[in-house]
Simulated assay, not measured.
Amino acid sequence: MQKVLLLFLSVSVLLSCSKDDGNSEEPSQNDVAFSSLVISEITGNSAKVSIAIVSSSETITERGVVYGTSSNPTTDDNKVALGSGIGEFQSTISGLDSETTYFVRAYALSSDIVTYSDSESFETSISCDGILNGAVVLNSQEDINTIGMGNLCEITVGIIIDDNGSGSPITNLEPLQSLKKIGSLRINNCSMLPSLSGLDNLIEIPNGLGISNCNLISNLDPLSSLSGELGHITFLNNDNLSSIDALAGITSLTREDGSKSILLMSNSSLVDLDGLSQLENVISDIQIVDNVNLSDFCGLNNLLINGSFSGNYFTNENAYNPTYQDMLDGNCSQ
């Protein structure tokens, strides 16, 4: 009787352990690691998306990106399949609506399980249509509004905005927001223009930028997408201009007509040149005079110490006036 009872207890214990072990198992899941998702080259109807699958515990049979106008899009929304396996992948998604916020994330499919990366958002710019081959002179707000109605992408030679009193004062550049490239840009005598808002989508001004006698403009922030080459920089008599930091993407000033590559004169609120810190190549003169609060020239260090500068350098009547040798010796501010 004791042997039968012991056998019964042993079988009961074994059955009980097998059942517990079975219940403790969790369903297998694919462990996928993504890199950070990068969104670039945003236009009015497209954007480039780049990401990588760094590792995966299962074989990735399909990967790609999904996007939509709601957060955390899924494969039931817009989907672009981009191969399989781990590694980098990218796609330019197109057919987007202008001035619209989109959400995008990557996905990985394995064993019928879909894993997503973190979601990122971006806003498409205003769309544009056409190129004007020539130059445009805009003397009033009516002129600004009229050229804006063309929804142009580019004006090849350039724009001169000069408030000469022939119409309503120039107060708003928003009608120009479709422009991506202008050969050159000069803004003169716009005493009632509070900012450069409306030029936010400009990515190229290859032949130069000039602003003079625009006393309400305090910064160049709407021009922060500019990068690479700019013909020259001329800022004259802008009493409220305190920052040129938005020019930090400019690396080269290539004016070749004998004029100044950099001319900064009588900008009484300007205190530093940090926006010029990425300059590597300047082929003509630098003249910086009568900026009464300018005491920090360290933004020119990269150019004068490490870069290529073939012009003349002149400073006078600023809060500090370092010589070329002062700059080379590291005495760039006071």
Rank of each mutant, 00 (worst) to 15 (best):
A135P: 00
I126H: 10
C190K: 02
S40Q: 14
S119G: 02
E256L: 11
G258H: 06
M327S: 05
F235E: 01
E62I: 07
N207Y: 05
A248R: 06
D20S: 12
I211G: 02
K48C: 00
E142Q: 15
E88I: 09
S184E: 03
G275E: 05
V11G: 00
C298H: 04
E88W: 04
G83A: 12
R255D: 14
L304Y: 07
L152I: 04
N151V: 12
S195W: 04
E62H: 12
L276M: 07
S227M: 01
I159L: 13
D129W: 12
N172V: 07
G249W: 05
I60L: 09
L6P: 00
L247H: 03
K181V: 14
V66C: 09
V4E: 10
S50D: 14
L294A: 05
M265T: 14
N238Y: 05
G275R: 03
S70K: 11
E41W: 02
L37Y: 06
E58A: 13
L199M: 10
E142T: 07
L220Q: 06
T100C: 11
D329F: 01
A319G: 12
Q278A: 14
G208I: 05
R255V: 15
P27L: 14
G87L: 11
S98V: 06
I262L: 10
C153I: 03
V11Y: 05
V282M: 08
K79Y: 02
L199C: 01
L176T: 08
L279E: 03
S57P: 06
L179M: 13
D163P: 01
A246G: 08
L216S: 00
S10I: 15
N301F: 03
N306M: 05
L303Y: 01
L300T: 02
I144Y: 06
L7W: 13
N267E: 09
F34N: 03
Q325A: 10
T43K: 07
S218R: 13
N238K: 13
D221C: 01
L209Q: 06
S166K: 10
T234A: 09
L82S: 11
L37I: 14
Q325Y: 08
G249A: 03
V136L: 06
V54P: 07
T124L: 08
S98D: 12
L264G: 00
Y320H: 09
I244D: 01
N316R: 12
D329Y: 03
D112I: 00
G208P: 02
S57L: 10
I53N: 05
I182E: 04
H232C: 05
